[in-house]
Simulated assay, not measured.
Amino acid sequence: MQVTDPAVHLFGMSTVIAASAGYSAQTRMARAWRRRPYAPLLGRLAVAIFWGCGSVAGLTVLGIPTAITVPIALTVLTVVTVVLAAAFAGGLIRPTRRPGLSART
């Protein structure tokens, strides 16, 4: 059993299914975390994960070996994670303020 077998069975060759599952996950995440300032970001990350799984599954069905697609997908995921972690740790990205709350100075 390969790493991408569950994704291939779930999404098949249809990347439309992966995209719709990603958008469904985004709306569910946004509803579940609606009071948190990072809810939209978490929803977008869920969409990106679903799109990545659907892309790898679609390329696997087309015959492109997972020895090529999985390392590329993991590299992209690692780079995005490191950039976001550095941005949060450095203070470049801050939580949005709720309307009606005064900013502390």
Rank of each mutant, 00 (worst) to 15 (best):
A89E: 00
Q26I: 04
S55K: 04
A32H: 14
V61W: 05
A67G: 10
A87P: 04
A89V: 02
L101V: 11
V83D: 08
A46H: 07
R34Y: 02
G63E: 08
V80M: 00
G52H: 12
V16L: 15
S102G: 03
V47T: 15
F88A: 08
V47S: 01
M1L: 05
P65W: 10
V70E: 04
V79G: 01
P99R: 08
P40A: 07
G12P: 02
L74K: 09
F11Q: 07
I72E: 01
G63Q: 05
V83T: 08
P71I: 00
R28H: 06
P65E: 00
R44F: 02
V8G: 02
S55H: 10
M1V: 08
W33P: 00
F11A: 01
G22H: 04
T81H: 14
P37Y: 07
L62N: 12
T60D: 15
G100D: 07
M29Y: 04
A39K: 11
T60V: 08
I64M: 14
L42R: 00
Q26W: 07
T75L: 13
V70T: 10
L41H: 11
R36L: 07
R97C: 04
L59A: 01
V3S: 06
G52T: 11
P40K: 04
G43S: 02
V82R: 05
A46G: 06
G58K: 07
R36Y: 15
L45C: 10
G58T: 09
I93K: 00
A25M: 12
A103E: 11
T15D: 00
T96L: 05
A103F: 13
T15G: 00
A19V: 05
R98A: 15
G91M: 03
M1Y: 12
L84G: 13
R104N: 04
T4P: 05
L92D: 07
S24H: 06
G22S: 11
V3Q: 14
R35V: 08
F88N: 14
T66K: 03
V82F: 14
T69Q: 00
P6G: 01
A86Q: 06
A32M: 02
L62Q: 10
L45H: 06
A73R: 11
V80C: 10
I17Y: 13
G54V: 05
F50G: 09
A32P: 06
S20H: 07
G52P: 09
I17S: 08
T15Q: 02
R44W: 12
A87V: 04
A73V: 07
A25H: 05
V3I: 15
R94S: 13
I64H: 12
T66E: 15
V76P: 08
G58W: 04
P99D: 01
L42M: 13
P99N: 11
D5R: 09
G90F: 06
A18W: 03
V3P: 14
T75W: 06
L84H: 03
P99L: 03
S55I: 10
L92Y: 09
